[in-house]
Design a protein around this nucleic acid. Structure first.
Lengths: 141, 141
DNA sequence: CCTTTAATGAGATTGAGTCTCAAAAGTAAT
DNA sequence: ATTACTTTTGAGACTCAATCTCATTAAAGG
C-alpha cells in the first residue's frame, strides 16, 4: 500500500488539496478490493473496522478521488453509484447480471472506434461514456 | 391520438390490467412530445393542465407503460429517469450534452453486433443495455 | 508556534421514488 | 342496471442515497 499513499498525496497536491488521515482511510478501503462497491458499503466497512470517518467525508472523499482519476464511478442506473479503484485496470465497460448482481468487465477497441465516429457525426466532443450490458450470467440463465 | 388510445387499451388488456382515465392522461402526456422527460416533469405538466392525477399514479402508470413496451426508460445515471414514447422510434441510444442537456439519438448496427459478441464471449443472455455518450455538443464546445 | 484556510462531523435537508390503506372505480356475472 | 369482486387511485407518510450547513478541528507554510 506504500505506493498508494504516494499516489494519493500527489493527486491531492496537484489539486491544491490537503492530505488527511480520513482521505487515506477511504482510499485504502477502496484499494482493498477490485469490487464495484457503493459509498454506503465503503462507509460501513470503514466504520466496522473501528476507524472513524463520517459519512459526509466518505462521500466527499470519493468525489475527490473520482475527480483526481484515482477512482472510477460506475452508474448502473439503479440509484446507487458504485466505485472501483483505477490502479491496476485500464478503461473498460461492464456487463451486469440482473439476477445475482455479478459484474464482469469488457473492453472492445472496435466499439470505442465506432463511438468516436458517432461523436464526429453528431459533432460532439465526448468526455465520457456509459456502456453497460444487462442480462443473465451463465449461472443464472 | 385516436390510435394511441387503442394502443393503450390493447396493451393493458394483454396484461389483464384495467383501462382508466388516469392512465390515458399519462399516456397522452407522454405522447405529446418526443422529448426525454422525467416523471416529475410529466406529473407537473398534467397538474398544471388542470387534470388530476396523483404523483403516485403517474409513477405507477409510467412503470406500467414501460413494462408494456409503450415507453422507453432512459437511465442517464444522474438519479433521475427520463422517459420517451416508443411510438415512432425504433431502438436507439443517446448522446448527451453535459452543458445544455441536449439529447440526440444514435443507432449503430455494428455496435449492436459487437455487443452480441461480447455477450456470447461472457456467456450472458442480454435483456437490455445502456449506451450513452456524454460530452459537449456543437453549440457548447 | 501562529495564522490562514481547508477539511471534518453530526445531523438536518433534499429529492426521486415507493409504500400504505381507505375510498373510488373498472369488470363480469346475474 | 345491480351486485360482487378486484384493481386502481389519492394523500401523505416513508425510504434511501446523497448533499448541505455550520461550528469545530486540523493541515501547511511562514
Amino acid at each position: 500500500m506504500a505506493t498508494n499513499i504516494q499516489l494519493l498525496k500527489d493527486g491531492l497536491k496537484n489539486e491544491g488539496l490537503r492530505y488527511t488521515s480520513q482521505r487515506q482511510i477511504v482510499w485504502d478501503e477502496i484499494c482493498k478490493t477490485d469490487d464495484h462497491r457503493d459509498a454506503e458499503d465503503i462507509y460501513f466497512k470503514i466504520k466496522t473496522s473501528g476507524q472513524k470517518v463520517s459519512r459526509a467525508t466518505v462521500y466527499r472523499t470519493i468525489d475527490v478521488l473520482v475527480k483526481n482519476n484515482l477512482v472510477r464511478k460506475l452508474e448502473l442506473g439503479d440509484g446507487r453509484n458504485r466505485y472501483e479503484n483505477k490502479l491496476d485496470s485500464s478503461h473498460h465497460d461492464h456487463i451486469v447480471c440482473i439476477q445475482c448482481g455479478r459484474i464482469d468487465e469488457f473492453m472492445d477497441e472496435n466499439i470505442e472506434k465506432l463511438q468516436d465516429e458517432i461523436a464526429k457525426k453528431y459533432q460532439f466532443k465526448i468526455v465520457r461514456h456509459i456502456h453497460q450490458l444487462f442480462g443473465l450470467c451463465r449461472d443464472c440463465r
